[in-house]
Design a protein around this nucleic acid. Structure first.
Length: 282
DNA sequence: ATCCAGGAAAACG
DNA sequence: CGTTTTCATGGA
C-alpha cells in the first residue's frame, strides 16, 4: 500500500482533521482506518506515527486534499494571540483545514442550516445515493457526489425525497443556477474574499455563515470566520463580553464578531475559528 | 412535550 | 431600516 512519510514540519492529525466537523463523508473504523469518498474515489487511510498509509488515490491527491504541502507552524504562530486560543491549538494538535471539493461543499453547507452534524451527514449521503455514481471499493458500494445537472435535471422529483426539509428548494434552485460548475468555481476562486462572499450569498440558501464555511473549506479564503451558535457562545464568553445575549444572531453581531476575529487573529483567522470550534466544550 | 441543532428567507413594524 | 417568525427533520 502506498504511503507518505511526514516530515517534522508536516504536523498532522487524521482524527482531528476528519473528525472536527468540516467534512461529512468520512467514517472511522474501530482500528484507526478512515474511509471516505472524495470526488469519484473512495479512499482508505490511516496514520502510524509519521507514516500515512492509504489506498484509492495517488500521493499527489492526498497531499493536496489534506493541505500537506503547507507548513502549519507559521500559521499557528500567527493566530496564537491569547491564552484561550493557545489552549485550543494545543488541544487539537495537527488539525488541518481540508481542500474540499467545491460544489459538494456548497451543497453540504446549504444542508447544514439549523441542523447538526449527524443530520448533515445523513442528507449528503442520501443525495449521493439518489444521484451519484456507484463506486465499488473493497466489495462495498459507495456513491460519488452528483454534479449540479444530475440534481437539476430530475426536475426536483427525486431531490424532494432526500429529507432535506425546507432546504430542498435551496439545493434544487442552486443546482439550476450553477449549470456550469467549472465556470462557477473559477469565478469564485478568482475573487477576493469579500467579493466572493457577496457572490455566494446570492445563491438561494446561502447566508453569511454558509458562505464563510464554503470560502474557508473549499476556496482556502483563510480570512473567512464562520460564526455559528457555538462560535458565538465562545466569542461571548472569552472575547467580546459586551455582545447581547439575544436569541437570534443579527447581521450586525455577525459583522462585529468576524471583524474582531480578523483584527485579533489576523489573516488566518479561519484557522483560529476551526481550532476554537474543534475544542468547544459540549 | 419541549427544546435544540455548524441558519436563511420572508414577514413584520 | 432592524427585529421576529417560519421553515422540516430527527435526536435528546
Amino acid at each position: 500500500m502506498p504511503e507518505i512519510i511526514l516530515s517534522h514540519n508536516q504536523q498532522f492529525s487524521l482524527d482531528q482533521t476528519l473528525g472536527c466537523g468540516q467534512v461529512f463523508r468520512w467514517d472511522r473504523t474501530g482500528n484507526g482506518w478512515w474511509y471516505g469518498v472524495v470526488g469519484e474515489r473512495v479512499i482508505r487511510i490511516r496514520k502510524d506515527g509519521s507514516r500515512l498509509i492509504f489506498k484509492g488515490a495517488p500521493s499527489s491527491l492526498i497531499i493536496k486534499y489534506f493541505s500537506l504541502d503547507l507548513d502549519l507552524r507559521p500559521i499557528l504562530t500567527s493566530i496564537d494571540q491569547d491564552p484561550f486560543i493557545h489552549a485550543a491549538i494545543n488541544q487539537c494538535t495537527g488539525l488541518r483545514l481540508i481542500r474540499q471539493p467545491k460544489w459538494e461543499c456548497l451543497v453540504s453547507y446549504i444542508c447544514s442550516t439549523n441542523s447538526n452534524i449527524p443530520m448533515i451527514r445523513r442528507r449528503i449521503a442520501t443525495i449521493a445515493q439518489q444521484f451519484g455514481k456507484e463506486i465499488t471499493f473493497e466489495e462495498k458500494t459507495y456513491f460519488s457526489f452528483p454534479d449540479p445537472f444530475a440534481i437539476s435535471c430530475s426536475g426536483g422529483y427525486a431531490i424532494s425525497d432526500c429529507k432535506l426539509g425546507y432546504r430542498t428548494p435551496y439545493v434544487l434552485d442552486t443546482a439550476c443556477k450553477i449549470a456550469d460548475v467549472r465556470k462557477w468555481e473559477d469565478t469564485i476562486t478568482a475573487l477576493p474574499y469579500e467579493d466572493a462572499r457577496r457572490q455566494l450569498m446570492k445563491l438561494p440558501g446561502v447566508g453569511p455563515k454558509a458562505a464563510d464555511c464554503i470560502l474557508l473549506f473549499a476556496f482556502q479564503k483563510y480570512e473567512a470566520f464562520p460564526v455559528d451558535v457555538w462560535i458565538r457562545r465562545i466569542m461571548q464568553h472569552n472575547y467580546i463580553k459586551t455582545l447581547s445575549t439575544s436569541s437570534a444572531l443579527t447581521t450586525k453581531e455577525y459583522e462585529t464578531i468576524r471583524r474582531f476575529a480578523k483584527s485579533h487573529f489576523g489573516e488566518y483567522c479561519g484557522y483560529a475559528q476551526e481550532y476554537l470550534y474543534a475544542a468547544r466544550e459540549r
